[in-house]
Design a protein around this nucleic acid. Structure first.
Lengths: 356, 356
DNA sequence: TTTTTGGTGGAAAGCGTTTTCCATCCGTCA
DNA sequence: TGACGGATGGAAAACGCTTTCCACCAAAAA
């Protein structure tokens, strides 16, 4: 049937392979073959085709090409927001590895809204993404498990892969690749660093029950206390979100009640550390002279703060996610589950405790 | 002709609309109509179709759909890297506006390599992106102009749009939308702030001839000096890149030669400011007591540094880029060229000059 | 001279949708 | 009772490409 013509709003048409063929005086088959690689055409034919392509400024229609079978493969990454440095670094890693594997990278953001996440995953399915990488902190409740399970099966059903980055795994029956951070290990190292320097009253800023990232880090904190036989005081764990202003707020409130009842601080990430340092400074306490502090993530702020912190290779997580997903897609079997290690970066925000 | 079957590596097939139709006992046309919106089908038919979709876990093939005419439109953004906070914020704005306009956002990175940029633009053309947004600093030479001109015409030829974000415009004959920052205006305000506080020897860190961003900011700096009738000393302009370590390096080198010959610093961005502050601190100079400093960008570091800086709404730039591109695509005419304003955010890194 | 062979390139099917026509079918009105 | 009209849904073309067959032609082999 006649269809509305292929005419964009401004009236220009993109040229088709048909037109190229006509202009070059060959068949579409020949054009297609010459364009898509090493077809042994005679030099004259090849030249004629290339000229026609040039003159018409022809670009292939990716959709038609995909439909016909040779799509450029793509990998999708879905995250809360691009402006969170941690996520951005993961995205960077994904992008790099994706490009290295000759694929296109689609990035979508959700703003932390599960509805939008669902829509995104659906969308990526429609786009035939080879893998869909979900990154970021999340409340790991019953709903979460069900939702992810649906995603995983839906994607597996069309030969794609779900990858969970820094999210809790789902169990052996769910076909999802998992790349985790060693939050507990890093927190253990950070806390131990402070404990070894003689600190015993260590404030822990940013705990948040239900959130996997925070929980892992708090667990490491507690484990370190136990290992050093330092009693655990729940009053030293302060709840808050992982943001600069939250760190500021938590520390301000803590100091409002009187003299500090701690000598060191373990901030659950660098942003919190930054806010806390500001609050301390405003109250006349100096870092590291009066109070020691260590952070977590080793992102930009830690340079400005000269912050001792736990380094997380976010980019490596992204790269690993892509690599594993594609390998697994090719090989099959049980989906891999890896944990990316961390290490402490010592700068100048923690000192041995002053025994006054 | 028989084709290799639609079989992904793991042997699973995605189900087609044909299968849904068969299972529901209707024709593909009916399924298509029911799925794509408000077709007045009888409730029973509708229910049967929905059930089949559910059971087969059917998702439409976006490529086929695009080929048939109703593609989900998309907007592409191409940038140097996602981990640069400034670019990330622009990307965030683009993403938000794109989503708001019901489009998909494709993000590609180039690592600053013109080759990869070309490939990216080409790729986005193949994907039928409605607009391709190029963001970021760039050397604006002859080559640049030619290359962009080619992009612009190539995209225009297929009814798409080139958008330049924070890049020099190309002239009236080139069909490209331009969204610029008011670098000079912001720099003028920042420098004036220092001048009004009595500073006359103001170090300018990060100049870089040829780079549009740096040039605009330096121009504002000079303009402010002139407006305040303060002599311009070229020796106060230090060349360097817009990175933390460069700021550190530049300041270190400056201080290595003896006592500072300046009382204030205008850092061409916040990262440079951060590095410079560190270098100052290490040399025993306090900010703002001994040296005043202002930055540019108002990104994360300025919170930790309590930095007086020039606020740039990167997100607004992203949003505006998308909005203008889509409007212009619909309306045609001369492509718009807008400049997004800036304003000074006063924190606590600059003080009146001490008249010692 | 006839047959083979290898290099070239054309015709057409098929990818999975959307959408334009049509063909029913059922109830209504004259 | 026959014609008409609205509601419903089917058949098939079209989107732009890739790729499988095939056909053709020249040169080499028989």
């Amino acid at each position: 049937m006649a269809r509305r013509a292929n005419v964009p709003a401004n009236g220009r048409r993109r040229s088709t392979i048909r037109e190229v063929a006509d202009r070059a005086g060959v068949s579409v088959a020949t054009v297609s073959r010459i364009l898509s690689g090493d077809y042994p055409a005679s030099p004259t034919t090849r030249k004629r085709v290339m000229l026609a392509v040039e003159e018409l400024d022809y670009v292939a229609n990716a959709h038609a090409r995909a439909l016909a079978g040779t799509s450029a493969k793509s990998v999708a990454i879905v995250l809360n927001s691009v402006i969170s440095p941690a996520y951005a670094h993961v995205a960077q890693g994904v992008e790099a590895q994706t490009a290295a594997e000759g694929r296109l990278c689609l990035i979508g953001t959700t703003g932390g809204d599960p509805e939008r996440e669902l829509a995104m995953v659906q969308f990526m399915r429609e786009q035939h993404a080879e893998a869909v990488i979900l990154v970021g902190n999340v409340v790991a409740d019953e709903t979460y498990h069900k939702r992810m399970s649906r995603y995983a099966h839906g994607l597996a059903a069309i030969g794609s892969r779900l990858v969970l980055c820094g999210r809790p795994p789902l169990g052996p029956d769910v076909p999802a690749v998992v790349v985790e951070y060693d939050h507990a290990g890093g927190a253990f190292a950070a806390t131990s660093h402070l404990l070894s320097a003689g600190h015993e009253r260590i404030l822990c800023l940013g705990s948040r029950p239900g959130y996997s990232t925070a929980e892992g880090r708090v667990a490491g904190y507690r484990r370190a206390l136990a290992a050093h036989r330092v009693p655990h005081d729940p009053a030293l764990e302060v709840e808050g979100m992982m943001e600069w202003h939250e760190g500021y707020r938590m520390m301000k409130e803590r100091l409002a009640t009187g003299a500090p009842d701690f000598t060191a601080v373990f901030a659950l990430n660098d942003l919190i550390a930054g806010g806390a340092v500001r609050a301390l400074t405003e109250e006349g306490l100096r870092v590291p002279d009066d109070v020691s502090i260590v952070g977590f993530d080793d992102l930009q702020p830690s340079l400005d703060l000269d912050l001792t912190t736990v380094h997380l290779s976010h980019e490596e997580v992204g790269r690993t996610a892509v690599r594993l997903a594609l390998e697994h897609e090719a090989r099959g079997g049980t989906p891999p589950h890896v944990t990316i290690g961390t290490h402490l970066v010592i700068r100048n925000s923690a000192r041995p405790r002053r025994m006054s």
